[in-house]
Structure formats: C-alpha cells, structure tokens
C-alpha cells in the first residue's frame, strides 16, 4: 500500500496495473450480465412500457 503502483507502458498507452485490472474486471462483469440467466425470467410479466 505504501509503494507506488507499477505501470503498463505500451506505446502511447500508460496505465497503472490496478486501474487496468479494475477496467478489465468491469468488462468481465458487464459481459457476464449480458449472458447470465436472470432468475424467474420465464415468469416475467408481459407489461409494456410507454
């Protein structure tokens, strides 16, 4: 915690590994949310929005 973060330097891209891992984790969570089955989805009501 006391030492500075290590950085990924690839061409013009410069980002700390902690920040990169958070962004990659968010992408993984987003992808899972798109494909993971939602509980009781089959029983959802057919209520139309405006």
């Amino acid at each position: 915690m006391e030492s500075p973060a290590t950085y990924l330097h690839w061409g013009f891209i410069l980002i700390s590994w902690p920040n990169l891992l958070v962004i990659l984790g968010m992408l993984v969570v987003f992808a899972i949310a798109l494909v993971a089955p939602f509980p009781n989805h089959g029983e959802a009501d057919d209520v139309s929005a405006k």
């Binding site: 899972i32 949310a33 798109l34 993971a36 939602f38 009781n40 989805h41 959802a44 009501d45 209520v47």
Partner: peptide
C-alpha cells in the same frame, strides 16, 4: 415489469 427487464 416488462419481460425485457429480466436481465442483469
């Protein structure tokens, strides 16, 4: 809720 709201 509408059926399409059944998503994470």
């Amino acid at each position: 809720q509408p059926y399409y709201v059944g998503s994470w």
